[in-house]
Design a protein around this nucleic acid. Structure first.
Lengths: 308, 308
DNA sequence: GAATTTAGTTGACTCAGTCCACTAAATCGG
DNA sequence: CCGATTTAGTGGACTGAGTCAACTAAATTC
């Protein structure tokens, strides 16, 4: 088990303890409404849908069917619940709250809302937003949906993207290879030039997005009439393992070919092994290498070419 | 109640329902260990510290003292617990798990860890990291600590910051004022030039950080020997209300003054009302205005000056 | 069309959790 | 320093949440 996993296990357990205590503090006699927690949950679910069926609900809430049956009976006796035989299944009931049932639910609902609002009222709006995000994320990741890998999308650039490209390059190359800030400056110049002299049919920026945030980039720019240049190919660490590098390069090559270029070139450095493999797979050939000192490092630059 | 608050209230309630069901699914007979949830919680707490006192623990876990007393008795009968009179208080016991108690706790502890690991094992490492963050955030925000406003810090730039500055400008001005991408290009050029021609004692970039992420910027650059220029002053929406704009400008002015400049100038647009107030407060005077068409908009540029 | 499964119910039970009253030590207030 | 009040812990008595097994009746399977 690595460090993050240990930390995450601890976080899950700590959070469970925290939340158990927290819910417990809200009280068995929920919000002073005279409802037990389970009764309240059942009533809540009944209020959400008009065609519940007992077995289904028992499964959804993880309740004993016998126990649920008695709760529903109690509700029915109080006139809160209308039980009609299900037309599709003669054994099952269709459960529907009556108007009286809704009236009984309302104070509970409001107390619960009030409870949540009380917590929120202590928070400034941006923190409220973060709480919203945190809870949504936590729920998604703890439940089975967390398993679903987010689907990355590739799109063209829009406002804020160039800055992100620059920042991502600056961070990644500084952390991984110790390149200094002149590299970020170079990327900023390339990006600025791209925006300034953008040739719609001949140039394109591909931004990969994962979980709604930029996670990768690739640029096609015009080198000369017959030559396209591939630049600024990058995939953030958090987005690795999705084959995004390959997809971005394929998109870029595909665009360049469709735009009528006779060949595509790119400049990179020999230390970028993962990228190298992608270029080879797409048919690029190494045409030249030269040593240079840039960004505070001794590097070996490489020129690659792909003839269509 | 505004939109975010409504969404957050819903998220809290939904999460509570989710987590209740989720914990319920782990079972009253916790992890098949023969422990009830509360017993397990008590045992867990006992395992964490060697000097618990019953009343204190009852308060911490929100338990009825009588109930807790009986649980502790049961543990003591099984030889899990050593109860000695507290030296400081003749009424109280000092509670300490025996070796047998620890042995009884171990399988429970492992089951709980295993439970958490089972959840994590379905997630890819980056998602595990996000879960960790989400749970930590959620706990902090739901508990009282959430009330503590994060303290913004102001620091100099480092790798990735210029890109962030560009991105933040691009996003903000596009969203708020509809400026096109040529503005982001301009910012990128300014930022690139700053990095390229950085004059340490004479120029500085101030980055405001909130909650560990960049949230604002201000730059001092050399215009000529006697003139400093204030550029790229921005505070993200999420960081508004902390007085960061004012602090950034003050830092910048203070630096320029200390660096020996005779005056400071800045260029801005008349639509930026909030910024205007800050400049006035710091002593800047409007010296010129001119209409111009830039970034796809008709604008009125303003030159401000502060003579030291 | 018999065998099996599923929806819902009932009876019997257990034990988690609550409430009250009490003892004994500690603390407070004058 | 002493009576009044508070606090730590406990036992008795109770409630009711939740469980388990057995059953009926409808639906599904083979």
């Amino acid at each position: 088990m690595d460090a993050i996993e240990i930390a995450a296990v601890a976080a899950i357990r700590r959070f469970n303890r925290f939340h158990t205590r927290w819910v417990g503090a809200l009280g068995g006699n929920l919000h002073g409404s005279g409802f037990a927690l389970t009764e309240a949950r059942v009533l809540y679910e009944l209020a959400q849908r008009d065609d519940w069926q007992a077995a289904e609900m028992a499964k959804a809430l993880g309740l004993d069917p016998a126990y649920l049956s008695r709760i529903l009976q109690r509700f029915a006796e109080r006139g809160w619940l209308e039980r009609s035989r299900s037309p599709a299944d003669g054994r099952a009931w269709r459960l529907k709250l009556t108007e009286a049932g809704r009236a009984a639910f309302r104070p509970l609902d409001e107390a619960s809302s009030g409870q949540a609002q009380a917590i929120l009222s202590r928070l400034a709006p941006p923190q409220q937003g973060r709480l919203l995000d945190a809870l949504t994320d936590a729920e998604r990741l703890l439940s089975d949906e967390g398993m679903v890998r987010p689907v990355p999308i590739i799109r063209e650039h829009r406002a804020g993207d160039m800055g992100w490209v620059i920042s991502a390059h600056g961070r990644l190359y500084s952390e991984e290879y110790g390149w200094d800030l002149t590299f970020e400056a170079l990327v900023a110049e390339i990006a600025a030039k791209f925006l300034r002299e953008f040739k719609p049919g001949r140039e394109r920026c591909f931004i990969a997005e994962l979980d709604g945030a930029p996670a990768g980039s690739a640029f096609v720019v015009q080198d000369d009439e017959a030559t396209a240049k591939l630049r600024l190919v990058l995939v953030e660490k958090r987005a690795q393992g999705y084959g995004l590098g390959k997809r971005l390069v394929q998109e870029a090559v595909g665009f360049a070919r469709a735009a009528g270029y006779a060949r595509m070139v790119l400049w990179t450095n020999d230390i970028l092994h993962a990228a190298r493999a992608i270029y080879i797979a797409e048919g690029f050939k190494l045409v030249a290498e030269e040593r240079h000192h840039s960004f505070g490092q001794d590097l070996v630059g490489q020129n690659w070419e792909l003839v269509f």
